[in-house]
Design a binder for these strands. Structure first.
Lengths: 118, 118
DNA sequence: TTGACATATGAATGACCATTCAACTATAAT
DNA sequence: ATTATAGTTGAATGGTCATTCATATGTCAA
């Protein structure tokens, strides 16, 4: 790796540190996937939906009532959660029941909450 | 709790479920704090900064070079990370060295990365 | 005390995105 | 078939925020 590989508005101060760290960086795709994941659960409405679903399977109307929001707003956010594979759902007649996709999601919610309770 | 406590554009379908879940919801402040935390680490630039600092303490110039960004952009994001207590720093002459605030932050980064590697 | 460099910061800009609104599909009951 | 309710979805809007630009501060060397 040549020094001029670094392009920004200043000189590298600690070349060996930057070189070493650069090797430990992940692929841009990995960074995108992980930050997208955190971004999805980093929205107040979406987090509360997930938190609610962690307590019990719920339909769209129930979630809307719980959070005092419109069905449309909830449905839009559920679609974001679906695309991120954080929720699963089943239809029963007119009603669609949503639940958490897996334990992994639940663990992340809990980890976040325990983080702020230090 | 009365049924008309729920105000939205539809009827509650499963009253007991909503009631039960409502009791398990956290305070609005708790939700704000946890979602703010996830939002902070859910930005690509900030996550990459944290990931780099997890490998080694670094100064602003080094981070700017590593990520091919301006010192100003990095400094702004470091200020966000400082306010969120995710990084600590020490000054040595003209140079300011940043590092991860604690193990807890590191664990969360790792948890996120292992989540996407399923 | 002047210059050089590392970093910080305020204001402006542009992109992204949560919610709203309106229209739509799906299912069931009469 | 018609009506009613649950849910979805596309477009528009308004607010948030990452980056840029210009400027300021802090530290050191000459």
């Amino acid at each position: 790796m040549a020094k001029n590989e670094f392009i920004c508005d200043c000189e590298v101060i600690h070349f060996n540190v930057v070189s070493k760290v650069k090797e430990k960086m992940l692929s841009e795709e990995s960074f995108m996937r992980v930050t997208t994941f955190f971004k999805v659960i980093g929205d107040n409405t979406r987090f509360r939906i997930l938190w609610a679903l962690n307590q019990n399977e719920m339909c769209v109307c129930d979630i809307a009532n719980l959070l005092s929001m419109t069905k449309s707003a909830i449905s839009h956010q559920l679609s974001v959660l679906r695309k991120a594979n954080l929720v699963s759902f089943r239809r029963e007649g007119k009603t669609v029941y949503y639940s958490l996709a897996d334990e992994h999601v639940k663990n992340m919610l809990d980890a976040g909450v325990s983080h702020i309770h230090d």
